[in-house]
Computed example of a mutant assay.
Amino acid sequence: MPDYSKETIIKSLLLAPCALLILLTLSFMYMNNEFRFQSIPFILAANALIYCIYCVFTIPISYTCSMLLAGKNQLNIVTIITGSVLTCFLITLMGYLIFTHSLPEPLSRLLTDWIFYSFAVFTGFCYWGLLHYFQRKSSRASSA
């Protein structure tokens, strides 16, 4: 099991949603035919807002869990994807409580937002891949 450093975990967490944001931006622009120059600042501002929300809500939870799991050599693809889905569930639950001031009537409705969970799984895979990339990069730099 690789031993991940704090810097590797932080860099990976910060860069994990970038691929998803780029894909969402390109799909939004393609579906809405928004290739005009006037729409680009709005799209960039929306991406910046989504990234800031990710940084404020998700990174502290994920960083704490990752450090605990890395200390026990249990930070692997299964725990990352599980943590990503659980974090998405918590964020969705908090969103319902903040915006509607109640939980959805059948609580199973939280689990039917499959698109958010697929985003979480994709971001979890990106996080796992970035962890391995930065780990290999740091091990090559230290051996040279």
Rank of each mutant, 00 (worst) to 15 (best):
S12K: 02
N32E: 03
Y4L: 00
R140H: 15
V121M: 04
L97N: 03
L110C: 07
S102D: 11
F57R: 00
W128V: 07
R109M: 10
I9E: 00
I53W: 14
G83H: 05
K11C: 08
C88K: 03
S66H: 08
T87A: 05
S138K: 07
I10R: 01
S143H: 14
S12D: 11
A70Y: 05
Y30S: 07
L26M: 11
Q74D: 08
T123D: 05
Q135C: 04
G71P: 13
I98A: 14
I115D: 14
L14P: 02
E7M: 03
S84V: 07
I115Y: 13
L15D: 00
S143I: 13
T100C: 08
Y117D: 02
S139R: 02
D113P: 10
G95W: 02
L14W: 04
F134P: 01
G129L: 08
W128Q: 12
K11S: 11
I43L: 14
K11G: 10
I9K: 01
A120E: 13
C88I: 05
F57Q: 05
K137D: 12
G71C: 04
G124D: 13
L68R: 06
L26A: 06
F99I: 04
A70H: 00
L23D: 09
L103T: 09
L23A: 08
L131N: 13
P104Q: 02
A141R: 04
T64C: 08
M29Y: 08
N32V: 14
V85F: 00
E34F: 08
Q38M: 12
S142R: 10
I81S: 10
Y133D: 02
L86F: 06
C52N: 07
T82Q: 05
C18M: 12
S62W: 05
I53N: 13
Y30A: 15
T112R: 08
L131H: 09
Y54E: 11
M29W: 09
R109C: 15
N32H: 07
F42D: 09
L20Y: 05
L26V: 10
F89E: 12
T58H: 09
E7G: 03
S118Q: 07
A70G: 07
F35T: 10
F42T: 02
I10H: 00
L130Q: 07
Y4W: 04
K72W: 06
C52M: 11
S5R: 14
I98T: 03
R36Y: 08
A46R: 11
F99W: 06
A141T: 15
F119G: 09
I59C: 00
L13V: 15
V78T: 11
M31T: 14
L111P: 10
S102M: 11
C52P: 02
L75F: 01
R109A: 06
A120V: 14
M31N: 09
L75E: 01
L44R: 08
I98H: 10
P60Q: 10
L21E: 00
Y127P: 11
L86T: 09
T92Y: 12
P106W: 06
Y127R: 04
S139Y: 10
R36V: 12
S118Y: 07
P2R: 13
V56T: 10
T79K: 01
F99M: 12
L86A: 02
F116A: 11
K6I: 14
M67H: 15
N73C: 05
H101A: 15
T58G: 13
F89G: 03
I98M: 07
S39C: 07
S5K: 02
A46W: 07
C126R: 06
I59N: 00
S39W: 15
S39V: 05
Q74N: 09
I22C: 06
I59Y: 00
Y4G: 09
